[in-house]
């Protein structure tokens, strides 16, 4: 697992209060990990803070699963 993937997973575990085993690549924040709309916004903000980037709203809307977050960040974090 990449360093980015590890950090993403630990943020999700922390913010959503879920178990590590639940945080699979396919897991959806809202459908599988119990996030509501505010949790999702907070997650994106945490990713921005952790990786020191800005994720535009139209891009953020496409980040709905653990895998989508990891691939977006792996592509965009320098």
């Amino acid at each position: 697992m990449s360093e980015i993937a590890q950090k993403v997973k630990s943020i999700i575990i922390d913010k959503l209060g879920v178990e590590e085993s639940e945080v699979t690549t396919e897991a959806s924040f809202t459908n599988d990990l119990g996030a509501d709309s505010l949790d999702t916004v907070e997650l994106i903000m945490e990713f921005e803070k952790e990786f020191n980037i800005s994720i535009p709203d139209d891009q953020a809307e496409n980040i709905a699963t653990v895998g989508q977050a990891i691939s977006y960040l792996e592509e965009n974090v320098k």
Partner: peptide, 9 residues
């Protein structure tokens, strides 16, 4: 403006 979404509630 980087306010937490849980700030208001």
């Amino acid at each position: 403006p980087r306010f937490n979404p849980f700030f208001v509630p």
